[in-house]
Amino acid sequence: MAHFFTYAVLTSTVAAAIALSSSFLFAALGETMGQRSGVINLGVDGIMLLSAFATYFTALKTGDLLYAVLAGAGVGLVMGFVTAFISVTLKAEQGISGIGVYLFGLGLSDLLFLRLVGTPLPISQLSPIGIPLLDRIPAVGAMFFRQTILVYLAFLLVPVFTFVLNRTTYGLKIRAAGENPSAADTVGISVARIRWSTVLIGCTMAGLAGAALLLYDGIFMENLTQSEGFIAVALVYFGAWRPLGVMGGSVLYGLAIAVVLSWKSLGIIPLSASDLAATAPAVITVLTLLLVARRFRQPAVLGKPYERGD
């Protein structure tokens, strides 16, 4: 245990947790927008996989990480059109269609990877950027202010999304669409248009999540996300549909992964218990939810397509 409570290990573990949580955060923030307007998107993991592949492929071919991230977000946006068309326009069962999108993304991303990439060379990764002055604060600087641009972006979007949801007319319309669509309809809000927009935002965010994950790993492989997209959906419930709560959940999840891994790495958790210890992030999440889930109410019409005259 002595190894863990050193300045270097503690700061590094927290810094790793923050970095790990960024891809969850992107995806979960986007999903929050959709869910607040009443749309569940369970296809996040599939979209992340496709975007991660697009990011990887673009980086491999152009060597330009900006293009790569844009490609990832772009694929997310395209999948957003597909998802919105299915969920909003065609009013399909959202949970099930999401599984379809997931399987599609899972299969297609690997199919393309195997066929289009010969030797999977690693791409250059984003280098951390120190925030002037802040990165000099002892401990805190090393934990939070020497991250990559995408990590900062993910966390910066938390107040932005909070503001949009709570303080803008657009946010009001989103909440109306998710709580009482027929009332929204009667006052002239186009529920369909609002939902289209939140799904597009959500899927673009899923695309960014895939890009962030890919750039953290530096290479693509089959099922790269390891269910991260599903976990992100779970974190939306965890965060009680509020960006700040979602951030808390993402960081907690990242922290659980990083701490367990740290303890395994330093021999604090013996090899024989290695597998059991790896269940900790999931177990902690479920147990926390047991304590808090009853206190929060989900958007009233979550997952239900809206039709006039209902």
């Binding site: 379809g100 997931y102 399987l103 899972l106 299969g107 195997l114 397509p305």
Partner: peptide, 24 residues
Amino acid sequence: GVPPDLVTTLEGLVVVFVVSLEYM
């Protein structure tokens, strides 16, 4: 030489189509 991932992709498409047609 086409990886079996193609079948996974097809399954995804089937699901999407089935639920979409359901509305009509």
